[in-house]
Computed example of a mutant assay.
Amino acid sequence: LVDDLSAVLGDVVFPFNKFTRRRAALRDSSLYLPGVIKAMTTEWTYKKIFSAKLAGGKRDHAICLVLDVSTSMFGTLSIGMIKTIVVFIAALRKLSLENFSIIVFGRDVRLSKTNEQSWYAASIYTLIQQLRFDRDDDTNDADALETASDLLIQCSTRGEKKIFILTDDYITCGNRLSMIQQRAEDHNSDLIAMAISTDQTNLKSPYKRYLQCAATYGLLKALRFLVFGEMIQDLAGEREKILINSGHPLSDVTVDICFCLDCTG
């Protein structure tokens, strides 16, 4: 399961976004001497004379996991959360994504791990001690998300900044939660709410992006659907724009798709 989840995360959520090795390219600010020589010998039919960082891909992303430990999570929701966190963190580490923080919240907000801390015995012990679902009878989700947003703002990464909150969200901070979500969005932090259980939840009401699945293994399809489902909705929106502008119904919608395959070594 860890291998499968890491593959999904690496493909659709945290792709390579930092490259360290230079390759021949069609445009950039530096010339690529082997490319220039080849271009001269082919009477300039060969066009890749520039040097760009296109190989040696690495992932440079910042993640914050926000965990709801209020009493409403007791039962299958808490069991699903714990299983998911174990697999999720293992998948992140398999992708060499150590830059993640963990926040636990109920009535209060508690920082379990910062982005700078390593995931070692002390961090694991701290998190285990905080995963109690019989103490907090309130859900201070807005403060937790505000703290998560502040942590990601301070990160120096140039890549994706994502907040994953695991909650049922039955007791929320109302309108303030919407304001915090907008603030995170303004600072380029992507927020995804998750629940791993068959129990009924209230994720649909306060969150723009959410997923719920019965078991941890369902995350594989749920994450793919969340990403590609949004692409389909965007295409549907384009069709509606065409209909509104033209005033005539369309029987077919033509979409140009280009697949770019990297054949370099």
Rank of each mutant, 00 (worst) to 15 (best):
V104R: 01
Q129G: 10
K113I: 04
S96Q: 15
Q129T: 10
E98I: 03
T71G: 07
L131W: 05
I128P: 07
A122Y: 09
L127C: 13
A91P: 03
F100R: 03
F105Q: 01
K94A: 10
D108E: 15
D108G: 12
L97K: 06
S123A: 10
V87Y: 05
S101E: 08
T139D: 08
F100Y: 07
S78Y: 02
I85D: 06
V109F: 04
N99D: 15
T139H: 10
M73D: 02
R93L: 13
I89H: 00
S70Q: 04
Y120T: 09
R110M: 12
T84K: 06
A121G: 07
D137C: 11
V109T: 07
L67R: 00
V66P: 02
V87G: 05
T139V: 15
L67V: 01
V87S: 09
I85M: 15
T71A: 10
D141W: 08
Q117K: 15
L65Q: 02
V104N: 01
W119Q: 05
S70C: 08
M73I: 05
E116G: 13
S78K: 02
Q129F: 08
D68R: 01
F74C: 12
G80E: 01
D136L: 08
W119C: 09
K83E: 14
V86I: 15
T139N: 09
I124N: 10
T114F: 12
I102C: 03
Y120L: 10
L95I: 09
S70D: 04
I79R: 01
V86A: 14
N115D: 10
G75Q: 11
Q130T: 04
S112T: 07
M73A: 04
D136I: 07
S70E: 01
D138A: 15
R110S: 09
Q129L: 08
G80Y: 02
V66C: 08
G80T: 03
L67P: 00
I128L: 14
D134Y: 12
V69N: 00
A121I: 07
S78D: 09
S78W: 02
T126N: 15
D136Y: 09
K94C: 10
I85S: 05
F74N: 12
D108L: 11
Q130N: 06
T84L: 11
L111A: 05
D108T: 14
A121S: 12
L77N: 04
D137T: 13
L127R: 09
I103G: 02
K83S: 13
D138I: 11
L111C: 03
L95C: 14
M73Y: 04
N99R: 14
I103L: 14
T126D: 13
G75A: 09
N115M: 12
S78Q: 05
I102D: 00
A121T: 08
T126V: 13
F105I: 07
S112P: 04
S96Y: 11
E98T: 07
Q117R: 12
S70R: 01
F105A: 05
S96H: 13
I102T: 06
S112A: 11
K83F: 09
L67K: 00
S118F: 12
R132A: 11
G106W: 00
I89F: 03
V66N: 00
D141C: 15
V109E: 03
L97V: 14
R132E: 11
F88M: 06
M73L: 10
L131C: 11
V66D: 01
A121R: 09
D137Y: 15
S123H: 01
G106L: 02
N99G: 10
R93V: 04
F100H: 06
L95Y: 12
D141M: 14
M73R: 03
A91C: 12
